[in-house]
Design a protein around this nucleic acid. Structure first.
Lengths: 197, 197
DNA sequence: GAATTAAGTAAATAATATTTACTCAAATAT
DNA sequence: ATATTTGAGTAAATATTATTTACTTAATTC
């Protein structure tokens, strides 16, 4: 049997929870270790017992979010046939995630990409995994004749991610509302059919 | 006549230049005021004479870059007719800028959006100005029947920016090469005609 | 029951940002 | 021609924040 998942100690959980709730209101840079410790109700030293530094804690929070996201995506794709239908669903699920999990959106869109450590983190491993999934679906679509073969899959993936992210940026930054269904419909239509009349 | 542009003092210029050259190699967060002062050959105090704090200096560097970019864009659009042709040119010019001015790309894609101060900065005013230009061109295209009228212009703008930015992200982060002409052709084609076969 | 270990604390230290009080030289006004 | 102001710049002090260290304490295991 697999090793029983060792329960995290209270203190660690409180630290992670404090980080999440502080990030809902403030930027990563503006948070001090003291802030986090006070909010969590632990001492500053304990944070360094579980995390290498402030950024490592950030990456841990992102990783947990991303794990949930990937589980949900996998579920969402069950029973969907055809590459375009899968992409449509992924677009919807991604927007839904950014719209309803603002801390997740803020971390990934605003806070991590400026640090080299991120690209060595486990969180980034998950991002790459999601990337590969997307590329595979695009290739499947090309092979099936659903998707144009003259556009490199990486550009298609960039267009999908980039468009979604920009559409959700104002949500992450200014807390503006996003209508998931509407946004997904418009973005899918735009990417599938183009802007030319 | 307009007030003669007062020449910046040597020290200020050296500080700005030091910031630029350091940002070519390292992330904003990793730069200390001491680093910047040593590289510029001035004392730390002088930096605070001209800039409110480290971020204010970053915003100043971005503003100078963006001013140049807008001047170039305006030139590039001269004599081009038709909204789609203008968008095509803007896509090319934007990619060219990110590809050939990596510090600019790094600042705007990775370093500023995580701070509230940025959105109050003069640099951001210029970004909004560019945004408006793009929206105006899109509306012109809709009115002229070149661009679909059933897609909100803001989504079209997000798709254009987002796709370009994601395509240039690996350039900014990992210093990967970008073939401007090729990228512009593919992205324009993708956005104008869609990915569906 | 002694030894080890995990969870946690408190205080010290190190790194860094920022402020303060000053110097000097040039420009300007009297 | 000199006193006064001002802008450029410095050096050192201070404030803030991150990180490390040395230590409890309570539970587990040998």
């Amino acid at each position: 049997m697999p090793p029983a998942p060792v329960a995290s100690p209270q203190g660690k959980l409180k630290i992670i929870q404090a980080m999440r709730s502080l990030l809902a209101e403030r930027t990563f840079e503006s948070l001090t270790i003291a802030d986090i410790a006070v909010t969590a109700g632990v001492t500053e030293g304990l944070i360094y017992k579980y995390f290498k530094d402030k950024r490592d804690l950030l990456h841990h929070v992102l990783r947990e979010h991303y794990e949930q996201f990937l589980v949900q995506i996998e579920r969402d794709l069950q029973g969907i046939d055809g590459a375009l239908n899968k992409l449509r669903k992924i677009i919807w699920s991604s927007i839904e995630r950014y719209a309803n999990h603002r801390v997740f959106a803020r971390i990934i869109l605003l806070e991590v990409r400026n640090s080299e450590d991120y690209f060595k983190s486990e969180a980034y491993t998950l991002v790459r995994q999601f990337n590969r999934l997307l590329i595979d679906i695009i290739k499947e679509g090309v092979d099936a004749g659903e998707i144009r073969a003259d556009l490199p899959p990486s550009y298609i993936r960039n267009a999908i991610f980039g468009t979604i992210e920009h559409a959700c940026l104002n949500r992450a930054i200014f807390n503006e509302a996003v209508d998931t269904g509407e946004a997904a419909r418009i973005i899918t239509d735009l990417l599938f059919s183009g802007i030319r009349r």
